[in-house]
């Protein structure tokens, strides 16, 4: 596999538990950024970044618009905005129409990242109850990136990774226990 310049993890229902299990096992000196896009309810101050920060010594922060994307940091997509990746490897936010009933939409981040990071992008789609992320994975593949899904049999809600397996070309299918090691080896 090519050197990884960014890992993007998308998920919906049932994905938080996976993240909470995987994060503590991650190498604290990752040579690439991790961008997390999970569906969640739009509320005032979300506790998600804080919750994740408690499980890792990597820096965890909610994304700010126009922020440069740096290695060794875990970025969490804010609720009620789509997170897009700019060519200069910074974030921009967008509050256009929901996609797949979702904002943030995993597709929006996967698709814009696909073209920027090309064969140095790895996208992982976790448990979830709709098909958001599937079109994104198709784009990732088309631009030469690596596609990974949570093994649907290990997912609380299998629909999302199963749809990905049905419609996109998937390079790796991982059980939860295998994810941390897989990610650490991308470094």
């Amino acid at each position: 596999m090519n050197k990884c310049d960014a890992l993007i993890i998308g998920g919906s229902a049932g994905s938080l538990d996976v993240l909470l299990k995987v994060l503590p096992e991650l190498n604290p000196a990752l040579s690439f950024p991790i961008i997390i896009v999970v569906h969640r309810k739009h509320g005032a101050d979300s506790l998600l970044p804080e919750l994740l920060a408690g499980r890792t010594s990597l820096i965890v922060k909610e994304i700010d618009e126009k922020e440069p994307i740096l290695a060794g940091t875990i970025y969490v997509a804010p609720s009620d905005y789509h997170t897009l990746i700019e060519k200069d490897r910074s974030f921009s936010l967008d509050c256009s129409e929901k996609i797949n009933y979702s904002r943030p939409a995993i597709d929006a981040t996967f698709q814009t990242a696909a073209e920027v990071y090309r064969d140095k992008l790895v996208c992982l789609l976790l448990s979830g109850s709709n098909a958001d992320g599937v079109n994104g994975l198709i784009s990732v593949k088309a631009w030469g990136g690596t596609t990974v899904i949570q093994d649907p049999q290990t997912a609380q809600v299998a629909y999302m990774p199963q749809q990905a397996a049905n419609f996109a070309k998937i390079d790796y299918t991982l059980a939860i226990e295998a994810m941390a090691e897989f990610i650490n080896l991308l470094s």
Binding site: L84, E86, S92, D94, S96
Partner: peptide, 9 residues
């Protein structure tokens, strides 16, 4: 305008 957004539109 931010390029990623306008291109997407």
């Amino acid at each position: 305008y931010s390029k990623a957004s306008i291109k997407r539109r």
